[in-house]
């Protein structure tokens, strides 16, 4: 089963950052509605199971 760490939208948190935890990263997704585009970021663990937005890293 795919995991977040294999996803193109998963970006590990740098060690120097305040919210750093081993295995934690930012899941960044682009969204668009009638009012325009915006980008969302939420924390996920690399070991989490992939979600519907999963796209494998090239």
């Amino acid at each position: 089963m795919s995991k977040c760490e294999q996803c193109a939208f998963f970006f590990p948190i740098p060690e120097k950052d305040m919210d750093f935890e081993p295995g934690k990263g930012d899941c960044v997704l682009q969204q668009e509605d009638t009012k325009g585009k915006f980008w969302l970021s939420r924390p996920v663990l690399e070991s989490s199971a992939a979600c519907q937005h999963h796209r494998s890293k090239r």
Binding site: G36, K37, F38
Partner: peptide, 8 residues
């Protein structure tokens, strides 16, 4: 943990 966002 809250989802953050930036708009175009």
């Amino acid at each position: 943990n809250i989802t953050i966002h930036i708009q175009d």
